[in-house]
């Protein structure tokens, strides 16, 4: 039965793309006739609450702006995303936007889009392509900046004290851009003062269980942990459980800084179990739609645009929590 369904789906897709191709062949104008802008968006997948919020934001703001959205879920696979972008080119959408699942290997398909005269916008994650003419702009967070913000709070918090500060770090998945950059930005800021010392830095793979197990080990192998810096909320939340199980008070005995500001993290922040969260906002839909319109009107846009983001202290978290969408 599974086979039949997938065959039917594949057949349907094939038919749809052929039809779209035929319909547009005559005109060749690039857009599908009416003045509604069509946006093809290739998403990474639905791997986390952050990503789900990201998808929702894009869908809602497209509907609000009257932009026709063709949405594709790549299920975490590059080949799916490449297929989706190819089908967007065949369908002659006006603008293509996507969050690349990995950094490399996009040149051929982006060249196809360029040859077809369809502008491309990157969201959330970058590509390592040397030819920057392949895409118009990259809209997303600056992970290095997030690491710096985390470090700056720490420097301020321990201002005027000379005792050494022992920091343990829970890194994201090794090799992932957010993990590399958040580490780099954080280290850059705190290295100015020798009292800050990262005594252990291990991966928690961006997951709660990973964060908890790694923290359990570090609590044993490191004496006197003063500060925990976790590359995302989920690892921080797992670590909180490990800290509580070890008979210590998270937020007091060990100060905790995390990145993301998802709802669960904000709740812990408002309860004082986390001390500071640097936001990494998934709600880039409105900014994206604005860009899509500009690019479609052939207006010039900067090649790098940052997502509008902030930071949260426990007091600010209490205020923001009731309206938190994700």
């Amino acid at each position: 039965m599974l086979k039949k369904i997938s065959a039917a789906l594949a057949g349907g897709l094939l038919l749809a793309s052929t039809l779209a191709g035929c319909g547009d062949d005559g005109g060749g104008s690039g857009s599908s006739g009416d003045d509604k802008i069509t946006l093809g968006f290739a998403q990474v997948g639905a791997e986390s609450g952050w990503r789900t919020a990201n998808t929702k934001s894009i869908q809602e703001s497209a509907a609000a702006e009257g932009i026709e959205l063709k949405f594709n879920d790549g299920q975490g696979k590059q080949e799916n995303q490449i297929k989706a972008i190819r089908s967007f080119i065949t369908q002659r959408v006006d603008v293509i936007a996507f969050s690349p699942v990995v950094e490399s290997g996009w040149d051929p398909v982006l060249k196809e889009a360029k040859d077809a005269g369809i502008p491309v916008i990157l969201t959330d994650r970058a590509v390592d392509s040397k030819d920057t003419s392949l895409y118009k702009t990259f809209l997303g967070s600056d992970f290095v900046e997030e690491g710096k913000k985390a470090g700056e709070w720490l420097v301020k918090e321990y201002e005027g004290k000379s005792d050494p500060v022992n920091i343990v770090e829970l890194q994201g998945t090794p090799g992932a851009a957010p993990a590399i950059d958040r580490k780099e930005g954080f280290e850059e800021v705190i290295k100015a003062d020798p009292k800050f010392k990262i005594v252990a830095s291990q991966t928690g793979k961006f997951e709660r269980t990973g964060g908890k197990q790694t923290m359990e080990t570090m609590l044993q192998s490191v004496k006197d942990i003063d500060v925990l810096y976790a590359h995302n909320d989920d690892m921080g939340l797992g670590a909180i459980e490990a800290i509580e199980a070890a008979g210590k008070k998270p937020g007091q005995d060990i100060k905790i800084i995390t990145v993301d500001a998802v709802k669960d993290g904000m709740t812990a922040l408002s309860e004082g179990k986390i001390n500071y969260i640097v936001e990494c906002s998934p709600l880039l839909g409105p900014q994206l739609m604005d860009l899509v319109k500009k690019v479609n009107n052939k207006e010039e846009v900067p090649t790098r645009i940052l997502t509008e983001e902030t930071t949260f202290t426990p007091e600010q978290a209490k205020e923001a929590l009731p309206n938190r969408k994700y």
């Binding site: 890194q171 090794p174 090799g175 830095s201 291990q202 991966t203 080990t217 570090m218």
Partner: peptide, 8 residues
């Protein structure tokens, strides 16, 4: 992790 081997 306890011995401190880098995650990479």
């Amino acid at each position: 992790q306890a011995v401190g081997i880098p995650p990479e």
